[in-house]
Amino acid sequence: MFLFTARFSLTASETETFSDGLSVERKRVKPILMASNSDMGSADFESLSSTSDVELLKRAWRNEKAAPEILPYEGDLVERAKGQIELVEGNIEDYVENGMDPLVVSLYQMDLDRTQFLLRSYLRVRLLKIEKFMFHTLKSEEAESRLSEQEKVFATKCVADLAKHFEESVLIKLRESYRSVLKQSLISEEDDMVPEPHLDTFVVSRSNSHVTLNLYEEGESHQIVEMYRGDVYFIRYKVAKGAIESGKVDLI
C-alpha cells in the first residue's frame, strides 16, 4: 500500500493547507481515544496520522469499495477534499510561476494526483453501485437516504432510462398483465424482479476498537465474537454492518 501512503510535508505551507481539516478531525477522534485508555502514546500518534482528510477519504473509499451495498455519503469529507485539492492546485501553479525546483513540484503534483484519484474513485464506486442496484436503491428508503442530492437525481434518471429501455425492447411485446418492470406479473404481491445487493457476502474487516458482534441474527443460534483493536476478521457483512457504519470496524 505504499502507493497512497506517501504524504510529503516538505514546507510549512502544506501543513497550513491541511491544518484546517486536521483540527476538525482531532475533536472527532478524542472520545475513542479516551475509551481505549491503554497505551496513550502510540495511540495518540496513530490517531493523529489517521485523521487527515486524505486518510479519512482513503478509509471511506476502502469501505465503499469492499461493502456490497452503498454506504452513507461522506458529504462533508468530499467537500473538504475538493476544497483542499483546489488549494493545492493553486499552490502548484504558484510554485511553477515562482520557478521552484521542478522535482519538488512534480512531487506535489503526484501527491495531488493520488488524492484526486481517491476522490474520483470514491464517487465512481458509488455511482457503479447505484447503477447496479438502481431499482432497489430508489425502492428502499434506507438506501435512498444514503445518497447525496446529486446521486439521487442520477439514480432517478437511471431508473427512468432503464425502465424505458425495458419497456421498449421487451415489455411492449408482452400482454398487459405481464408488463411491469418490477413485478413478474399482475398477481405478484411484491416486487419480485428487483436485484438487491447480497448482504450475506463475506468481507475482510479490521476493528479500530473493542467490538462485540453477534455472529447470527435473532432467532438463529447465539454466538458472540469479540474483536479487539487491530484484529482482522473474515466476517459476514450483515453482522458487521452496524459496526462499520459507526466507524468501529473498517473494511480492507
Binding site: 502507493l3 497512497f4 475538493k82 512534480s106 503534483q109 503526484m110 494526483d113 493520488r114 484526486q116 484519484f117 476522490l119 474520483r120 474513485s121 464517487l123 465512481r124 455511482l127 446529486q150 446521486e151 437525481v153 442520477f154 434518471k157 437511471c158 432510462d161 432503464l162 424505458k164 429501455h165
Partner: peptide
C-alpha cells in the same frame, strides 16, 4: 445516449470529471 447524459449531468453538478484516472496513478 440517455445514460451517458445522466452521467454527464451528474459530473457537471458534482464539478468533477470521473472518467479520467481509472487506474491508481503511480507516476504523473
Amino acid at each position: 445516449k440517455n445514460h451517458s447524459s445522466a452521467l454527464k449531468s451528474y459530473m457537471g453538478k458534482a464539478g468533477i470529471d470521473l472518467n479520467v484516472d481509472m487506474v491508481p496513478p503511480k507516476d504523473p
